[in-house]
């Protein structure tokens, strides 16, 4: 692995979601709207501010927690960092291999079994074929899903999917790891095991970003915490300070 510095640098990032009046656009509904002369004003685009002027810089060897209410833009911010979403304006400067683990998983194909999904997923994360062969066994072993390895993913429970996703994302040794609520849905033993794994991942990966509603988790792993509120950074600093203030405001 090369030794150039890994960092995330976001400057004045803005992202708006276009809201469409018709969720499933179609030629047919256009014709119907035209004939019934549905008001054009209704179909005008409205806009939702998801991320509003966020600037942050995360340097190497930082483990950062992201907290905030539902809909405050935490996952959206992770998607911007992983290039899934393109910001409307602002500068996104990221150095390092990013591996995102969203609540939706790594992007599993429901009809394939675990082994196939690991192969495809690892290829998408930029691994070579020879590396993947070794990884498959390790990943399956860690997830303890040996019995289910040849079962199509569509029969998996949420917890099992999260296990597989977590095992893959942590096994490929990313430089920047983005985790979005990865511990939800796991059973007690799994969470214990995942916690141990997290400690070693944090040592290996250069930057880890964790989105979680479990403040325990955040205070366990993160040295720095960012509190997002309505798409803006409300507070950014030492984990204990931010968590205290966050809990205080929630109580009020």
């Amino acid at each position: 692995m090369n030794n150039s510095p890994v960092y995330i640098n976001l400057k004045d990032i803005k992202l708006t979601f276009p809201l469409y009046s018709n969720n499933i656009p179609s030629f047919k509904s256009n014709i119907v709207n035209f004939i019934t002369r549905k008001d054009k004003k209704n179909s005008e685009k409205r806009i939702l501010n998801a991320i509003d002027n966020v600037s942050l810089k995360i340097n190497e060897n930082e483990t950062v927690g992201l907290i905030g209410r539902n809909g405050s833009g935490k996952s959206t911010l992770l998607r911007i960092i992983s290039k899934i979403y393109e910001p409307d304006s602002g500068v996104r400067d990221i150095k390092g291999k990013v591996v995102p683990l969203m609540t939706t998983g790594i992007g599993f194909n429901d009809n394939l079994d675990a082994i196939e999904n690991i192969k495809v997923g690892c290829l998408m994360m930029g691994l070579k074929k020879s590396e993947i062969k070794q990884k498959i066994e390790k990943i399956i072993e860690f997830t303890e899903l040996q019995d289910f390895a040849y079962l199509p993913i569509k029969y998996y429970s949420v917890g099992m999917r999260m296990r597989l996703g977590f095992a893959m994302a942590t096994e490929v040794e990313p430089e920047i790891l983005l985790l979005d609520e990865v511990f939800s849905g796991g059973d007690f033993y799994w969470i214990e095991k995942a916690n141990v794994r997290m400690k070693s991942v944090i040592e290996k990966a250069k930057i880890v970003l964790i989105v979680s509603h479990s403040l325990n988790e955040i205070s366990n792993f993160c040295t720095r915490t960012i509190w997002l509120s309505k798409g803006k950074v409300r507070l950014d600093g030492e984990t204990s300070d931010v968590l205290n203030q966050y809990q205080d405001t929630n109580e009020n």
Binding site: T104, G105, I106, G107
Partner: peptide, 9 residues
């Protein structure tokens, strides 16, 4: 869609 929501490709 599920893939595009969880990975950049």
């Amino acid at each position: 869609e599920p893939l595009l929501r969880s990975q950049y490709l």
